[in-house]
Simulated assay, not measured.
Amino acid sequence: MTAMWKGSGAKPPLAARINPRWSDEEIPRNVVADLAMRPRLHPHIITFANEKGGVGKSTLAFHVAVALAHVGQQVVAVDLDRRQRTLERGLTYREGTANNLGIRLPTPQFAVLEQPSTASLFQTINRLGGDADFVILDAAGSDSAIFRRAVALADTLVTPVNASFLDLELLGHLNPVSGVPERAGCFGQTVASLREERLTQEMGPIEWIVVKNRVRSAEKRHISRVDDALERLSIAHDFRIGQGLTERVAFRELFQFGLTHLDLGLIPDMIRPHESSRKEIASLLDDLNLSFDKRVHTSVSNRPAARVLRRTRQDFRAAISNAL
């Protein structure tokens, strides 16, 4: 389909001039208008998005969803990646662990968005809990119509990046000699266009937080250069910088049980949780600067407890201890 502004002598919309990927149907005005015409969603929406895979979006989304449930918030988690389904798998494992151990774990209501449409997304959120405190959206690592809508819906947009200049290129380009930001990267352009359009259509601002995630022990000079570049980009593109989770074996191993270090104190006879890991999760939540009142958690799995042999529970508990 040819855009209305093509061949008419009129200038194309600003977003289309900045970001040529926007088609006539997908310019920011139409994306945001599609959302604005629907009944307002009342929960605070946190979208985890980046146009690059392997940066830990689902891991962070999982930990934030669980951390919010731990402080008594009603949380809905929607996995928008219907192929990998990483967030859904983690929360399904969590329910299985709770049943196998006969314990109650604070758990978000969750689902995968099987039909990638705006209507289906709104229906899924309202079905799981339209009166929830928070909605977590875990977007797939590639541009698409539903990806753009997930970004445009966000009250808080969280973008994980690795300590790599390759990852920073998606946010913005830096002059390799002077270090001065020159232009937005492909994802940076998308975010800027949608933020501007949300304000134009009076849907409120998107607070953008870029989280340096999966930091490994590396040369200090390299990390320092990445930090400096990220600071320059944050000023140029109006985002805050947060700290994610380090590359710990325990974070990866606990995921197969659907657990975080916040959960270990709820499991009888479990080894002492790593305090440094608990602090990382708490710092991540603090960096998001969310407003909520801590309550006794009520978001627990509503499935009936499974009848499990004592030996099975002992073996399951031992497997978790070995993972740590």
Rank of each mutant, 00 (worst) to 15 (best):
D263G: 04
D263T: 02
D263Y: 06
L264A: 00
L264P: 02
L264D: 06
L264M: 01
L264T: 05
G265H: 05
G265R: 03
G265Q: 06
G265W: 00
L266D: 05
L266V: 00
L266P: 02
L266W: 03
I267A: 05
I267W: 03
P268V: 04
P268K: 01
D269L: 03
D269C: 05
M270S: 05
M270R: 06
M270F: 01
M270I: 02
M270E: 04
M270Y: 03
M270C: 01
M270L: 00
I271L: 07
I271W: 00
R272M: 02
R272V: 02
R272C: 02
P273W: 01
P273D: 01
P273F: 05
P273R: 00
H274E: 04
H274Y: 02
H274C: 02
H274G: 04
E275R: 07
E275L: 06
E275T: 07
E275Q: 08
S276P: 05
S276R: 10
S277W: 13
S277K: 08
S277I: 05
R278N: 08
R278G: 10
R278L: 06
K279D: 06
K279L: 11
K279Y: 11
K279R: 13
K279A: 15
K279M: 14
E280Y: 12
E280D: 14
E280I: 12
E280P: 08
E280A: 10
I281V: 13
I281T: 09
I281R: 11
A282F: 12
A282W: 14
A282Q: 12
A282S: 11
A282Y: 12
A282L: 08
S283G: 15
S283A: 15
S283Y: 10
L284K: 15
L284Y: 15
L284C: 13
L285M: 13
L285F: 09
L285P: 10
L285E: 14
L285G: 13
L285H: 11
D286H: 12
D286Y: 12
D286P: 10
D286A: 15
D286S: 12
D287R: 13
D287S: 15
D287M: 13
L288K: 11
L288T: 15
L288W: 13
L288M: 14
N289R: 12
N289D: 10
N289C: 11
N289G: 11
L290V: 09
L290T: 12
L290F: 06
L290P: 08
L290Q: 12
L290G: 15
S291F: 10
S291P: 07
F292G: 08
D293L: 07
D293W: 11
D293A: 05
K294S: 07
